[in-house]
């Protein structure tokens, strides 16, 4: 789209767009192209020679049990983070929307975890879930009778990074849900109430369907967050351990590329992630165009 009334100049528009182009070319297109190239090459550890090997890096990657495990880990982790932070966020937002008087106060009380860095959220929860000093760990041990030890047991470590990642995302979801809830016309709710629908019935048959565009958007953003922005959480809390139990895909790219110095493998992993995020974006745009809505 473009305006009808335009300015005309031969050089000015190019000058204006130049900084954007320069930055995009140097830090986006060139690295992306390099990544694509490295992903089909095998280079020796000193970077002296590289040979073209077609898709061998990719086939090796998808045959690697560690990589397949990392995929499963990441999917499980993202689903847990997304489901828990969305349901808690939606629950609190619904409550806040009912509490008409305290809305502004509640929003202020809930919004700030958004500003906490994932890594710092990791530190806070590392203390809360510390096997010997943590209060939440103590509670888990007492109430569930399990021997909580995230340093040694993979499932405990997984619970730990899920808690730290989901906690931070609750406030983000809350902001969207409260905005979405406020946009639902009061008259619809009132009409249903006059027809005798209970508050719970109204929630499931009116609020949730009308909230579906927000819900969809928030789900996509949460998945992206869980996949890519939780690097800090993993790095601070578990470094991918114990035994690779929390080795998410982004963490693995870092580990293989910067610590293992496996350029080709790391590049192939980057390409897989790029493809993944492109697919997510395309799906999102498609559905945003169609506007997910109440249909039946």
């Amino acid at each position: 789209m473009i305006k009808r009334s335009l300015f005309s100049s031969k050089t000015l528009p190019y000058l204006l767009i130049l900084p954007q182009i320069v930055v995009t070319l140097t830090f986006f297109y060139w690295p992306a192209a390099q990544g694509l190239m490295q992903s089909v090459m095998r280079s020796d550890p000193f970077g002296q020679h590289s040979t073209f090997i077609w898709f061998a890096n990719f086939t090796a990657l998808f045959k690697d049990p560690l990589y397949l495990k990392s995929i499963a880990t990441t999917v499980f982790f993202s689903v847990c983070v997304t489901v828990s932070s969305i349901s808690i966020g939606l629950f609190i937002a619904t409550m806040a929307n009912r509490a008409l008087k305290a809305k502004a106060v509640v929003r202020t009380a809930l919004i700030w975890p958004y500003a906490v860095a994932p890594a710092i959220s990791g530190i806070l929860w590392l203390f809360l879930l510390h096997p010997s000093y943590g209060i939440v760990a103590l509670g888990i041990k007492r109430w569930f009778g399990v021997d909580w030890n995230p340093v040694l047991r993979g499932s405990d470590a997984m619970v730990m990074i899920i808690m730290a990642s989901a906690w931070k995302e609750i406030s983000y979801n809350f902001v969207f849900f409260i905005a979405g809830l406020q946009a639902i016309p009061k008259s619809l709710i009132e009409a249903a109430a006059i027809d005798g629908a209970s508050p719970f019935r109204r929630f499931w048959t009116i609020t949730v369907p009308l909230l579906s565009p927000t819900l969809f958007f928030v789900t996509v953003m949460n998945i992206i967050y869980a996949f890519f922005d939780t690097f800090g959480v993993v790095h601070v809390m578990t470094q991918g351990g114990p035994g690779g139990a929390t080795n998410t895909l982004v963490y693995k790219v870092y580990q293989d590329g910067f610590i293992g110095l496996n350029m080709g493998g790391s590049a192939a992993q980057s390409v897989v992630l790029m493809t993944l995020i492109i697919v997510i974006t395309v799906i999102q745009f498609k559905y945003v165009e169609q506007k997910v809505q109440y249909t039946g």
């Binding site: 767009i17 986006f28 990544g35 790219v253 980057s270 995020i277 974006t281």
Partner: peptide
């Protein structure tokens, strides 16, 4: 088009080549 292709790709997925750059 070329600028908006970059819309969703975070630094996390192209770390190694960006580092080399």
């Amino acid at each position: 088009v070329s600028v908006f292709c970059t819309l969703m790709l975070p630094v996390e997925v192209r770390i190694l080549p960006t580092y080399e750059m």
